[in-house]
């Protein structure tokens, strides 16, 4: 793959998976500035890892692994943002807040509950809500399928309880 093809390939991957990029960033970073840094860091790591990609894995599996690994590592150094980042335009990382409907309020609550989860649980829940199969989640995280089921069950129960407490 020459440089031009590599760039094109990279741009296609980002374009196809930008939804994942934003959702991971929203779950792992409470504030907008950190979110921009995280998105940029994930993109840098994807760009740098692109030559290592082999097609024995789905591209989405590969992309999720990088995104979650970077997001969790970002948490590790979250108070020490380096100066290497350039600002992405605000427009690219913000979702407009319009007049909120009941669904949107519920969604905000769901996002808030997810952001309160521990780092690995957070990743697990994002994958579950993205409707990934247990096998694929196991592949991305590197755990057994049965343990995926057990962990998801526990986190779901916790979320349900939180929703119930709020609604009552």
């Amino acid at each position: 793959m020459n440089e031009k093809e590599r760039k094109q390939h990279f741009q296609n991957i980002i374009e196809q998976h930008k939804g994942i990029l934003y959702k991971v960033a929203r779950a792992y970073c409470p504030n907008e500035e950190d979110r921009q840094d995280l998105i940029q860091e994930i993109m840098i790591q994807v760009w740098q890892s692109i030559h290592r990609y082999n097609n024995q894995f789905k591209i989405s599996t590969w992309f999720y692994r990088i995104s979650l690994n970077v997001a969790i590592s970002f948490y590790r150094k979250s108070t020490t943002r380096a100066n290497k980042y350039t600002m992405l335009s605000e427009q690219t990382t913000q979702i407009p807040i319009e007049d909120k409907t009941a669904d949107e309020i519920q969604l905000n609550l769901l996002e808030q509950f997810i952001s309160e989860l521990k780092e690995i649980d957070k990743g697990l829940m994002i994958l579950y809500l993205e409707d990934k199969s247990h096998a694929e989640i196991a592949e991305i995280l590197g755990m057994s399928i049965s343990n995926v089921g057990t962990k998801i069950g526990r986190i779901k129960n916790r979320l349900k309880t939180q929703f119930l407490q709020l609604n009552s």
Binding site: S49, W62, R65, I66, N69, V70, I72, I120, L141, G142
Partner: peptide
């Protein structure tokens, strides 16, 4: 970092 999340972390 494109290895499984738990192993890498």
């Amino acid at each position: 970092i494109s290895e499984p999340v738990l192993k890498t972390q």
